[in-house]
Amino acid sequence: MTDSENRPDLAGLQRRLAEFAAARNWQPYHTPKNLVAALSVEASELVEIFQWLTPEESARVMTDPQTAHRVRDEVADVLAYLLQLCQVLDIDPLTALAAKIERNEHRFPAPQASDRTEET
């Protein structure tokens, strides 16, 4: 099996998160307001890891195993709350992202080759 065959899909992860919450009777607390607040807290915890690093240090953050573990955990927490929010609000996150990218491509067109200045 390849890595892509073992890789979880978004719908499966959302289902596991919902089952996890249901088994603990947490669904009453998973309101959009609460999920957005939790998402913000977890995003802030991710920011905290990078807060005082230089740009160069931040680019190397995954080279330290302990820090890399913290970054992966916080990314997972952010994604978990975002996926739960999407499920509660019936948003397909991949469709929403694709639509946003398309809007941004129209709002912020890439410069044409003739518009770029040549570096010498």
Rank of each mutant, 00 (worst) to 15 (best):
E42Y: 01
G12N: 05
A113L: 11
R72H: 11
R72L: 14
R116F: 05
E57Q: 15
V47Q: 12
V75P: 13
R60Y: 10
V78W: 00
S4Y: 14
L79F: 10
L35N: 05
R7L: 10
V78T: 06
I91F: 09
F50T: 02
L53R: 09
A110Y: 05
A43L: 12
R107V: 01
D90C: 05
P55H: 05
P111W: 03
D3I: 15
L10N: 11
A18R: 12
L82T: 10
A98P: 00
M62F: 12
Y29G: 14
L97A: 11
E48W: 11
P109D: 01
D115Q: 15
Q112F: 02
P8K: 03
L39H: 05
K100E: 09
L94C: 06
W52T: 15
R70T: 06
L83F: 12
N34I: 03
L89W: 04
D73C: 11
D9G: 14
Q66W: 08
V36H: 04
A96I: 01
E5N: 06
L13V: 14
E42R: 09
R70G: 02
N104D: 08
Q87P: 04
T95D: 12
V41E: 15
N25T: 12
R107W: 00
S44R: 12
L82A: 15
W26L: 15
T31K: 00
L89K: 13
V36C: 13
V36D: 04
M1F: 05
N104S: 02
V36Y: 04
W26C: 00
H106C: 00
V41S: 07
T117E: 14
E5R: 11
Q87N: 05
A96W: 08
R103E: 10
R15M: 12
Q14S: 14
I101K: 10
E19Q: 13
A23V: 02
E57L: 11
L39V: 00
Q112D: 05
R16A: 09
A43Q: 10
R103F: 03
E102Y: 01
C86E: 07
D73S: 12
Q27M: 11
E118P: 03
L82Y: 13
E19M: 09
D77N: 13
L79N: 06
A110F: 07
N34W: 06
Q51V: 11
S44C: 07
P55N: 02
V61S: 07
T31G: 08
A96C: 02
Q27S: 13
A11W: 14
R60L: 15
A68P: 05
H69D: 10
P111I: 07
S114I: 04
T67D: 00
V88H: 04
L53T: 09
A18Q: 10
I49L: 10
A96L: 11
E74R: 01
R103Q: 09
Q84T: 04
G12S: 12
Q112P: 03
